[in-house]
């Protein structure tokens, strides 16, 4: 039972030349239980990526601590898988070598690897694409490779930074279903950052709306839509009056934050 915990997390970027400091994160506190799905929403520049980078261990917080179970997060690790906006695939390797990259780094048995690759390509719907060069795949397919590459490593937590941001609406919807399916099947803890309010509502069992300057959690929601999305069609959920209500509320909230930023600038 490993929860993802943030305690009084502060992150301040200081420009080494000017000495100007940006408070990217200020006093972030939350506990994400195992198997929870958290989506993070907020205006541009409010520190979402920074938060995720701290959780992934790419950067170290100025103060406070992030923990997975009782392990302090201070470096990247296999137990925390990452999915980036642009896939960040290794374009010199074919799909299957991308997917089993983590396994190969662990020097696993290659026959077993092969089986796992087959399985995961199947799950993400890329059967038969094993030998295709990644640069010949569409954006959606590349993102699915990235998902498979992350999941094959069997991480405890999956961190996603706008994983569906670059996709068209239809592909995006399919991928949202896929994420929900994977969540249900694997029972992983997932933290997903998004710009789309609808996506955040659909995917987020829990939802943080962050506010900028300093970056902080402005409001937290607990939502039923992710659970429902496992059984119902996502499009129907979007027509639910409660869904619309929350969406409008959040949109207004973020709109006001943006206005505030503009006004201040």
């Amino acid at each position: 039972m490993a929860d993802l915990v943030c305690e009084h997390l502060n992150m301040t970027f200081t420009n080494p030349q000017t000495g100007a400091a940006v408070e990217a994160l200020k006093d972030i506190n939350f506990t994400l239980k195992k198997g929870e799905l958290l989506s993070v929403l907020g205006p541009s520049g409010c520190g979402k990526t920074t938060l995720l980078n701290v959780m992934a261990g790419f950067i170290n917080a100025t103060s406070g601590a992030a923990r997975l179970g009782d392990k302090l997060i201070d470096a990247p690790g296999v137990e925390r898988g990452m999915v980036f906006q642009q896939g960040a695939l290794f374009e010199w390797l074919p799909v299957s070598r991308n997917v089993d990259f983590g396994l190969r780094m662990k020097k696993n048995d290659s026959a077993e690897n092969e089986k796992l690759v087959e399985k995961w390509l199947d799950i993400v719907g890329l059967q038969g694409f094993g030998e295709t060069p990644t640069y010949q795949l569409s954006g959606g397919m590349q993102q699915r490779v990235a998902l498979a590459r992350c999941l094959i490593n069997d991480p405890e937590v999956i961190l996603m930074d706008e994983p569906l941001g670059a996709l068209d609406a239809l592909t995006r919807e399919k991928m949202q279903s896929l994420v929900l399916e994977l969540w249900k099947e694997t029972g992983k803890t997932i933290m997903i950052i998004t710009h789309s309010v609808e996506e955040a509502l659909l995917l987020g069992e829990r939802l943080f709306v962050m506010a900028p300057r300093p970056g902080r959690v402005h409001k937290e929601y607990n939502l039923p839509f992710a659970e429902r999305g496992l059984k119902e069609s996502l499009r129907e959920i979007k027509h639910d009056p409660y869904f619309s209500e929350v969406r409008e509320e959040i949109l207004t909230m973020i709109w006001n934050m943006e206005e505030e930023i503009m006004g201040r600038v």
Partner: peptide, 14 residues
């Protein structure tokens, strides 16, 4: 690209 390096760190590469 930094993201590729980060991705490989997360995938457990030394």
């Amino acid at each position: 690209q930094l993201t590729k390096i980060r991705a490989s760190h997360s995938l457990g590469a030394s």
